[in-house]
Amino acid sequence: MTVAVYLPLLLGLPLALAAPWIAARGAPGPAAWALSLASAIAAACSTWSLALLALTMLDDVPPLAALDNHPALELPEPVPGPVAFMAALVLIGGAARLGIDAHRRVTTHRRLRAIGDARQQAEAGMVVADWETPMAVAIPGTARRRGHLLVTTGILRLLDAGERRVVLAHEHAHLVHRHHRLTATAAAAAALNPLLIPVRDAVAYLVERWADEDAAAEVGDRGVAARAVARAALAASGSPASAALGIDGGVVVRRVQALTQPAPTPHCRRLAIPVLLSVILLGVAAATTEAFVHLAQAWL
C-alpha cells in the first residue's frame, strides 16, 4: 500500500480552506450544491481510506497471521499495526458522530412536524404558534407530505407586512429547493471527517443566502429583505431562548450586508476548486482500492 491511501484524509483540508472564500462571492445556489457534493465525496473517500487502513489489520487475524509468518511466503507489511488501529478508532468515532447527528436531525424534524393539524399544514402550508419568541422555521416534508412553515406570533408581530412576506418567502425557498438535504449532507460529511466542518458551515450559510436572494426577488425589494433579516436577528438576540442557538451571529451580519449590495452574479469559475478536488479524490480512491485488491490477493 502506498502513501496514496493517506491522501484522501488530507484533501479535505484544501476544500475546507477554500469553502469560506467560495461562499463569500457569487450566486449562492451553485456554490451550495458544489460544496455539499464535494464534502460528501471528500467524506466518502476519507472514510474509505480509513476503512482500507483498518482492514490491513486483517493480517493479524490468527489464520492469516499464521500465513504471514510462513517463511516461504514473502508478504509486504503494508501499514504499521498502530496506524491501522488508529484508523479503526477514527472510523468508529466518525460513525458515532454521524449517528448522533442524524438522530438529532430526524427526531427534531419529527417533533416539529407533529405540531398543528395535518389539514392546516397541507392547505395553508403554515402553522402559527402563539409564542413571543421570534422564530420562523421550515419543516421539510416527507415522502407522503409536503413541507410547511412553523412561525411564531412573536416574529409576525415584530415585522411589517412586506417584511413578513420576506420571512415566508425565505422559508418557502428552503422547502422548494430542499435545502435540508444539502445541509444534512454537509453535516454528515463533517461528522465523518471533522476537517470538513468549515465546509458544513459554508453550506449552511449559502442556503440562507440562497433563500434570502429568492425572498428578495419575490418581494422585489432588497432593502425590505435586508431589514427583515436584521430586525428578526436583533429581536432574537434579546430573547433568552435564542441565547443558546448554535449558529454564530456573524452569519446574519454577512447576510444583511449581502442584501444591501446588488444581486450577485454567477461567478461560477471558483467552483472549479471543489470539482477538481472531487475528481482528484475519486481518482486517488480508485487507485488505492486497486492497490488494496492486489495486496489482498497476495495475502490469500
Partner: peptide, 27 residues
Amino acid sequence: AAAQMKAALGERSDRHAVLQQFAASLD
C-alpha cells in the same frame, strides 16, 4: 402549537442547530 414547540426545542438547545430558521442570535 406553542406549547409543543417549546417542548420540542426548549429542552435541547442543540436542536436549533439542525433547523433552517430565519435568524439566529448575535453578539
